[in-house]
Design a protein around this nucleic acid. Structure first.
Lengths: 130, 130
DNA sequence: CTATCTTCTGACAATGATTCTTATTGGGAC
DNA sequence: GTCCCAATAAGAATCATTGTCAGAAGATAG
C-alpha cells in the first residue's frame, strides 16, 4: 500500500471539493469546465494529473464509460462495482464477495497471479424503465 | 436477435480473415496496419465501421484495454469474460455462470432491467510470473 | 523570516484514437 | 446491362488525453 505524499494545494482541494459536492461520476473535461464556471482557475492538465493521483491513492474511483471516456467519482473505500443506468446515469455501488472469490479461483486455475478486475453493469434503472 | 444484412465485400472479408488468422485481440489501428502490410487496400474508417458492425452482430468480441483503446477478437459465440496477461497479452476466455446469476440478482434487487455487463480480469500469466 | 529545494501548475502544443464528409465504387435485383 | 443504394476511400475534423517547460508555491533548513 504505497501512500505517496501529496502537497495540499488550492487546485487539489478544489477538485476534491467539487467531487464531494457532485457525488456522482464526472469526466475530467466536465470537472474542468465546472471549476472554470465557478471562477476557479485550474488547468486542464492539472485536473487530469490530480484525478490520476487521487485514483492511484484510492481516493476516487475511476471507470470507463462504454465509449471509452474515463469518469471519476469520490468513492467509499474498498473494492466494489457499479450498476449504471444507461439512460439517466444514476449509479449504485455494489459489492460482490462471490465475484471476488470467483475471479481469484479462476485466476489461480489458469496460473495467473497478481490480478485485479473490472466489472460494470449497465441497464435501465426503475425510474427509466418504460 | 437482430441479424442485419451485410453486403459481402472484399474489405469485410479481409478484416474477417485477418481476425481469424490472428486469433487474438487487436486494435482497429493495428488491424488496419497489418492489412496494409499485406498489400490489401482497406481504409481505416472502413476497418472501424466493419469492426463495429461485426461487434454489433456478435461476430467479434470487443473489449477495452486499461488505457481505453478498443480491441477486437474473433470469438466463440456466447457470453464470456477474459483473463488477460498484462505483460504478454495472452488471453484466456472464461465463463462464469455464477457471475451471470449474481449480476442478474443484483440488478433485480436494485430495480434495474435490460442489463448487460463487462468483466475483465488482468494479471500475470504463469509464463510471465517472476 | 529567508533562502533554497522540489513539487505542482498552467498554457499550449502534440498525440492518437475515433468519427465525419464527400465523392466514388460496386453488389445485387431486375 | 442498368439502376439504386449501401459500402468505401481519403483525408480532414474532433476530442480526450498526455507532453513540455518555464514559472509559481509548499516544505524545510538555517
Amino acid at each position: 500500500m504505497s501512500v505517496t505524499f501529496r502537497r495540499p494545494t488550492r487546485q487539489r482541494a478544489a477538485v476534491e471539493a467539487l467531487l464531494v459536492s457532485i457525488g456522482d461520476f464526472m469526466s475530467a473535461q466536465d470537472l474542468h469546465a465546472r471549476l472554470r464556471a465557478q471562477g476557479q482557475s485550474v488547468g486542464l492538465a492539472t485536473v487530469y494529473r490530480t484525478l490520476q493521483s487521487m485514483a492511484a491513492d484510492g481516493d476516487v474511483d475511476m471507470m470507463r464509460t462504454s465509449d471509452g471516456e474515463a469518469v471519476y467519482r469520490r468513492c467509499s473505500n474498498g473494492h466494489h462495482h457499479h450498476l449504471v443506468c444507461r439512460n439517466c446515469g444514476r449509479t449504485v455501488e455494489v459489492e460482490g464477495p462471490a465475484v471476488e472469490s470467483w475471479t481469484n479461483k479462476i485466476s489461480a486455475e489458469n496460473g495467473f497471479s497478481d490480478v485485479h478486475h473490472t466489472l460494470e453493469i449497465f441497464g435501465l434503472c426503475s425510474a427509466c424503465t418504460p
